[in-house]
Design a protein around this nucleic acid. Structure first.
Lengths: 328, 328
DNA sequence: TTGAAAGCGCTAACAC
DNA sequence: GTGTTAGCGCTTTCAA
């Protein structure tokens, strides 16, 4: 249909077309440096006419800026990369980067030795988005990476953080459980080492304490499998449990399955609530009560901040609201 | 901890260290052109000693090859990008590209006008992986993109295809339904325009015809929402339906919810089977019988093929096996 | 087999 | 304000 254009236009062509030097054309196109209004219009018009689009590779070379955004996921094993949450994050980064001509890479960061210096030295790397961030990972951020890292989770003096309001969301869910008469509320947490899961646990502990109720904590690891096992453990240790708050929906769905197997009615015998509002939370039986978690927006914001080198506020918190369904 | 290295080593440094010219060092590092064994070893040793890593940006500039892999998803609206299946695909591409220093970008390709020429001309683009591929999209592949496109779904003379064995997987599921006594089997399909969903439908029609049974087809769109609606439609039109095969798990889970609301027992009254074996297929109530679909492996293979410019077989088909659970 | 030199397309000092 | 010039780090002719 369209004739394949013979050759991509270069800045030189635009400059010639507009009757100016390459430097001036560059100033116009990159929007930096002084140019007279008349010349600017002339160059822009020429660029439009020739359908000129600057070569991002050449730009990257001269500016030394790199061209890919690495999503680095802290985890005990490379298995973390199989979490649907990671998929969502990467897709969001890939989408946010597209207009900038920047792609997303996915990489595992061993929890025991989260080395970021290789990434910092890699000239193809434009910036890094940290997932499941730990203190150790934050400390491993080398100087040369400062200003082009963002963390989904905890941040530091040098690393801006973007996260959902874990504490607020958890509190909303727990208040709902309490308001509907639940008093023997257990919680299935995430892995101990993951700071982003602490707030929820603190919320739980805070509310239980202020209500004068004993805490019933069991550790999980964000997976449905451990949600299932953790639920069985809860029932064994505290058979009279009448509600469970799971650190995320996957865990909650696992718990739901365990309760079903045990013949406990949800929500009549035991109420179940999760966190995240993943697509299938609405489809479980009963449909899962949970708290919203705008992962795409969060990661998109983090990616955009890195790409723009925007200083911005050091901690951006996205609200989480209660999603009432049938399970609680 | 580690002292930030003052400056990245350049090819020049390696050349000097090895006592050769930059050109020779380049020949060694890029592995092209004639070099004596002695010199090769000397240069390699020097590179190792200096911890030299070639700058991918400079390489891209000189070779004009681009540095991002675009996952282009055909769809009626940009909403297609919200499908978890897309997330998985992008994550797989991002992971496959990482060792090559290539990132993944995500982009919507309007079904009505799937233009690929812009991507072809974009010098930052190394290659393209097509998702939900249509004939129109294949025809829109410009000459300049040949050899660096792959399709997840149908392929063409110029575009190698990578896909799961939709026909085989569907047949396995349907044979299972038939073998367990189901005779009034309905199917909820995908959108009509999506060729990658046709094979499953053909399998369904073929098996029904050969068994002398009438087809009961209803169109969905891969979403749980339409799975729900389609199921109600099925029950209204053919109240005696005793099995449903859904084009994918999301649809099947929607159907499951609809059956629950209608008070039909699964699998006693109606058997339900899906396709994909998504993580939550195992968690539904009852757990979903389905067929496996190794999305990550498929997209990883496609991405790798594009990055390697590997000619390879034009059509790679990944097997799909029946996953027996409770719903059928 | 090796080296010298010319770019890839762009930006940014530095002059004017 | 605008043009000239020197690179960014690498590959690749072209000679030797």
């Amino acid at each position: 249909m369209t004739a394949g254009s013979v050759r991509q236009m270069r800045l030189e062509d635009v400059a010639k077309e507009a009757g100016v030097s390459r430097a001036t054309a560059s100033r116009v196109m990159s929007g930096s440096g002084p140019v007279s209004a008349a010349v600017r219009d002339r160059v822009r018009e020429a660029a439009r006419r020739l359908d000129y689009r600057p070569d991002p590779v050449a730009r990257a070379l001269v500016s030394g800026s790199g061209f890919r955004l690495v999503v680095a996921v802290v985890g005990t094993t490379a298995q973390v990369l199989e979490d649907p949450y990671v998929d969502r994050a990467v897709a969001a980064a890939a989408q946010a980067g597209a207009p900038y001509g920047v792609g997303a890479s996915l990489q595992w960061l061993p929890r025991q030795a989260p080395r970021l210096d290789r990434l910092a030295e890699d000239r193809s790397v434009r910036g890094v988005v940290l997932l499941n961030t730990t203190e150790a990972a934050l400390e491993a951020v080398p100087m040369s990476l400062r200003g082009r890292v963002a963390s989904i989770g905890i941040g530091s003096r040098w690393v801006p953080s973007f996260d959902v309001d874990n504490g607020g969301g958890a509190a909303a869910v727990l208040r709902h459980l309490y308001a509907t008469g639940r008093r023997r509320i257990a919680m299935v947490t995430g892995p101990q080492w993951m700071p982003c899961a602490w707030r929820s646990v603190e919320s739980y502990q805070g509310l239980m304490r202020s209500a004068g109720l004993p805490a019933r904590l069991v550790a999980g690891d964000f997976s449905a499998g451990t949600g299932h096992r953790a639920m069985r453990r809860v029932l064994r240790r505290w058979p009279d449990t009448d509600a469970v708050f799971a650190i995320n929906d996957a865990t909650a769905l696992g718990a739901l399955a365990a309760l079903r197997e045990e013949g406990r009615k949800v929500p009549d015998d035991v109420a179940v609530a999760g966190f995240d509002d993943i697509p299938f939370a609405a489809l479980s039986a009963p449909a899962l009560t949970t708290a919203s978690h705008p992962v795409s927006r969060i990661v998109g914001a983090a990616a955009t901040a890195v790409l723009n080198q925007a200083p911005g506020p050091p901690n951006v918190v996205f609200p989480s609201t209660l999603i009432r369904r049938q399970s609680a």
